[in-house]
Write a protein that binds this DNA or RNA. Sequence first.
DNA 1: TCTGTATTTCAGAAATCCGTGAAACTTGGT
DNA 2: ACCAAGTTTCACGGATTTCTGAAATACAGA
Lengths: 194, 194
Amino acid sequence: MAVAAASKREIEDRVLQEWAELATAWGVSPVLGRIHGLLLLNGQPMTAEEICDRLQISRASASVQLNAILDWGLARRIFVPGDRRQYYQADQDHWIWFRRAAATRKRREFDPVVARLGEALAQARAAARDDEEMGALSERLANLHNFVGELFRGIGLVLEEDEALLHYLLRLSPQELDELRHLLRVAVKEPERS
Amino acid sequence: MAVAAASKREIEDRVLQEWAELATAWGVSPVLGRIHGLLLLNGQPMTAEEICDRLQISRASASVQLNAILDWGLARRIFVPGDRRQYYQADQDHWIWFRRAAATRKRREFDPVVARLGEALAQARAAARDDEEMGALSERLANLHNFVGELFRGIGLVLEEDEALLHYLLRLSPQELDELRHLLRVAVKEPERS
DNA sequence: TCTGTATTTCAGAAATCCGTGAAACTTGGT
DNA sequence: ACCAAGTTTCACGGATTTCTGAAATACAGA
């Protein structure tokens, strides 16, 4: 298996490329992804200037994206005594930052949508009393609202901040997973309402 | 609780608005979201023309986005005998279409990234033999690659096509969930390698 | 084969997003 | 209080994305 020789820089650039890809798929700007990737690969705290030099981006852009990165909870600021510059260091526990970011996104973007869908549903139900034809819409909207609510609750369950189930799930062997599936199937046979 | 009166059209527009929002968060175009939303709310099969009229978009745009919707597995074409037009109908089982779309996305966008990250890792390891300094990068990259691989495997486990765990999980009562958590915690105490 | 309808493709236009440089602002040191 | 390094804000410009109308294509029925 011949692997093409590559410098550190080349390898980093490849990874940064992929990380930017992932970032856009996740719905954030590529540059944010590249900065985060760089921080991850570097491990050490970095100043904004170092990041700008390495990534060939402007100070302004770095400032904005760095703050976004802090907002998402992907990295934190390090204050070095006797140094006025701010250092940024990515969380090295990947599960931690990912779950924090997921939780942030859910809170910011998904929960409000569910709430507004709920309002629309209330309107539809109110109108359904007068207008016969509104009944079908009302019902379908109720389904949709219910689905979205459940889905996001599930995402929270599996992913969010602490106590994420996904963590435990991933450590299980295939056999154990099968057992678990069986267990769950049995458990949900009788419709529970606690 | 006074709820503002609203027409069917107004309510639909509100929902479509939210659905477009969700679509952009999910990384697809808003118009695709609106079309999908409309199909969901309508339930009945619709022609491209009906969709264009209702959403005030061009035929061309509808054509492209509808095909994208089919690609994602969010709706299917209905052929009506004696009618040359194509009808589109959204899958009414929300869990089905969502899981199918998630699986599609993982296959299309995420798996390739993991693969390419693996290549970069191989390069880094090869280079690490000669270049001492590459060792740290190599190790961090291995961590990253491992994390991404696990994460997407987990997402598949929880969400994908059939046998999704999420479904079962969501039907459990809080007590049962706690029991499950405890069960899992115990199960993963001893590091398993099957 | 010709015709009329439905759909897709394509080049250009509109809109949106994103990064930049310059100016404004903040803050630690003197 | 002033200075200087560091950071943030903002209006502008460039790039990408996305929509549109027109032309091309596909195809069922006569």
